[in-house]
Design a protein around this nucleic acid. Structure first.
Lengths: 194, 194
DNA sequence: CGAGGACTTGACCGGGCGGTCAAGGAATGT
DNA sequence: ACATTCCTTGACCGCCCGGTCAAGTCCTCG
């Protein structure tokens, strides 16, 4: 990664990130070669290594940037909402909406979770979102809004629901965020018994 | 894959499957070379290709066998239970218990889901378990035991919870099945509000 | 216009990959 | 003892991968 980038340079860098994300999502990280990436852009191999020191660094950058964006969106969506359960609902909606706009990123995350090189960073990223959810849960418990239970495990259960519905409906079927969010919220709050 | 295998041959084949599963789970499928596998067993490379026609075929075999075992365990656990919701609970317990005994398999499945070669088979495998869960849900709805909703989406939500808790607690922390199953069942049935 | 930094090219490299195979050893039936 | 089949060895092959770099070209600014 270079320190100084002209506007043109920044564009190229973005192009590389976008194209790589797309190819990684379609074919997977390992099966996608640097040659594939540059050839998809119609440029020479040197271009890649002008902007990134390795394929690995590019993926790390992709994960970092994506996580940053998602978190920003969640925070904007939650804003100053005071109700703890409502904050969880808003977080769910924001997450679904963001992945609907960044489908490639979901596949990339899923791969990264299985790779010993990237799993640690990914785990740290997830930890933060998990902690947020758990915080809201603790508050809701303190207020007697929900049953007392392990907030950390509940947070993971919620993220499990969201992750799965995101993959099956938002990514695979392009379903509407509202429709999925509705069921997700109901299920998380009231379970099957409704 | 050979048609005729002596007892000794069957042992070797099992050894190869076990060792590969372990290495795939630890380092990932692509980063694990056939040379790694045979060297972990202290045998020549030809042994691998005597029992499997390719690395790809071995992974496919691993997925197939694992899915078969898991399904068998679920069916045995559910047995002749008549209550639809109880069947779901028993399925949850059986799934957690099986993955507790086959941790490698979880990582392998997670990778396979991200690879375009294996995702299709995996999706078919999952489809079956999903259909089972959805069937129980429909029955429970018909009996007025749970709220009317999209059974397919609910089934995926449940599987999302189980998958996530399996990974975070059973695989990563070696937590007890009973403890995790308890929260999973409560969360799925009654949600946060308990 | 010229200098100099930003960017691009693509041939090239060492190495590791999945997969092959001729040859040889062990078990088994006859 | 011999033949036959099952299993094992490990050197070898062709390919392609990630990464390098000398030689440009393009842009900007003085």
């Amino acid at each position: 990664m270079r320190a100084k980038l002209t506007p043109r340079g920044k564009d190229r860098r973005e192009q590389l990130l976008r194209t790589s994300a797309q190819l990684f999502a379609e074919r997977g990280y390992h099966p996608t070669s640097v040659a594939d990436i540059v050839s998809a852009l119609g440029v020479g191999k040197g271009v890649f290594y002008w902007y990134f020191s390795s394929k690995e660094e590019l993926l790390a950058e992709l994960l970092k940037a994506g996580n940053h964006e998602l978190r920003k969106r969640q925070q904007q969506s939650i804003g100053t909402e005071g109700d703890s359960l409502r904050r969880i609902e808003l977080g769910i909606e924001a997450t679904l909406a963001w992945f609907a706009d960044h489908r490639d990123h979901f596949s990339i995350i899923q791969f990264a979770a299985t790779d010993e090189t990237f799993a640690p960073v990914l785990a740290r990223n997830e930890q933060i979102g998990l902690a947020d959810t758990a915080r809201h849960l603790k508050e809701a418990m303190a207020d007697g809004r929900i049953a007392d239970s392990d907030p950390d495990m509940l947070a993971r259960a919620i993220h499990g629901v969201i992750g799965r519905l995101t993959r099956d409906y938002i990514i695979d079927r392009g379903a509407s965020v509202a429709e999925v969010a509705e069921l997700a919220k109901t299920f998380c709050l009231r379970g099957l018994t409704g």
